[in-house]
Nucleic acid binder design. Structure first.
Lengths: 260, 260
DNA sequence: GTCAACGCTTTGTCCGGACATAAGGACTTC
DNA sequence: GAAGTCCTTATGTCCGGACAAAGCGTTGAC
């Protein structure tokens, strides 16, 4: 009688045991439910960095789901950079710091999320002819009317950024009151404009006397600049912004993923 | 006899007719072949912005593929921001400018791709104790040995950036000759290190006398700064970079997609 | 003339299975 | 003892089908 040649070996990192369950009565997609639970488990430390997730087949069986559905959930987390898949090895949690990617959000939302209680002072809010730079970026005819908004963004009374925005004038109204109580993007979303993508250019230069005065910086200080053209879900350009930030108090943080 | 109530209406944008075909003998995945052909068609203008792609079912049938395979190809282009899908409407090409997203590439590759013929001058290439800032970012023990590389990147003889990099000293050797003939990332890839993600921080400040001197800028000029920690596919930090760019000649351009 | 209801089109979600392929370990051979 | 070969494991790719839901135009009633 031949001895069994391949005895089962004990895995070095045993798959984590988690309380996972999906609600089939819920209208939220099953793969999305699973993805959120896995993401929460990673945030809470239940899934430690480097730990394996257990193979897809068994995971699907234990949840009563099909493999494609489980794969779709895992894929969304791989795209976010939370998980890494390697063939023949398994799916494991990457052990980099949290570091959420820079998203297409307004500065207002970013600061509010950080608990910095942002406030806004509207310096200008008019309609007028668009500079050539703006008509080119937004694809508008020359000498076209646009909404022009100049704002100063502050946290705890300290200026952080000087924001200049230009929008097609027929797109929506921009009441000064609403601009001071929330961000521009929140206002646009409330009017049915769903942002889809944006093209950004980040640079630096010495501030003008006006800019440095508004931001409370010494004359000629180095400032961080950002130009942005935003597009809605139909691909139409809906906003042009030319902003300057106090480099001494603000930086852009974001994460890059290879290829994608 | 009842009249037909729903006469077929002529579509406003008729689906584009394309020469698409896949090679089943090729080792490259079918969905990837299709994605590349569609992307090429968009770049070449065969698929004009706003045009519909034709429904997935027919597209799959005409190619002899299954719908999941076609969907996978389309999904990859949606993730890149080239296409937009809307239920009940179809898949259409977004009509924003090309504007490829910032990828995790070295400055060398970026400049070379732009046809700017970059060159590199290695100013320092040694091993030594790591600054606290570096050990913290790379997760190394304090007072650890690291490879330290200082380089000046030029195009057409003009300085563009001053690059300071720190790598775990046991990771690989960094011959000065190779560093001058290609980028750091290409060198790492040749040694089997596959980059996966990076955490970046972009800011601005006035340059020091040394920095401005090296870059050929007037003393105290505004410079663009970038700190980057790169991770390989196992999630290990493999590189720390602290770079300064001539703001008068260089900006970061990239594209943001909502949610993802 | 206005607006609700219907139906068509298209993508979104989900299933269950099949084979291919890369990574890694265990065993055997030299 | 070192190198090659095999097996196991897990993800990668692909198929064919099914039903649900959103968008939009047409129809029809008021």
């Amino acid at each position: 009688m031949m001895p069994s040649r391949y005895a089962p070996s004990v895995p070095k990192h045993e798959p984590a045991q988690l309380r996972l369950a999906v609600d089939r009565a819920s209208p939220v997609p099953l793969y999305f439910q699973l993805a959120r639970q896995l993401e929460a488990a990673i945030e809470d430390g239940e899934l430690t960095p480097g730990s394996l997730l257990g193979n897809e087949i068994e995971l699907a069986a234990s949840l009563g789901l099909s493999r494609p559905t489980v794969r779709q959930a895992i894929r969304s987390l791989v795209d976010k950079g939370l998980l890494v898949r390697r063939r023949g090895v398994g799916t494991q949690v990457v052990h980099t710091g949290v570091a959420r990617p820079m998203e297409l959000t307004s500065l207002y939302d970013d600061l509010a999320a950080a608990g910095l209680h942002p406030t806004t002072r509207v310096l200008h809010n008019t309609r007028g002819p668009a500079p050539a730079e703006v008509t080119a970026a937004l694809g508008l005819p020359e000498s076209c009317q646009v909404s022009v908004v100049h704002r100063l963004r502050l946290t705890r009374g300290e200026p952080m950024a000087y924001l200049r925005n230009y929008l097609p004038s027929d797109l929506l109204d921009l009441p000064t009151g609403e601009l001071e109580s929330s961000g521009l993007y929140a206002l646009m979303r409330r009017h049915g404009i769903t942002l889809h993508s944006a093209q950004q250019t980040v640079g630096a230069r010495s501030g003008t006397a006006e800019e440095c005065g508004l931001l409370g910086e010494p004359a000629g200080s180095a400032l961080l600049t950002m130009r942005r053209v935003s597009y809605d879900d139909r691909g139409r350009p809906v906003e042009y912004g030319a902003h300057v930030y106090r480099a001494s108090r603000y930086t852009f943080e974001f994460r890059l993923l290879v290829h994608g």
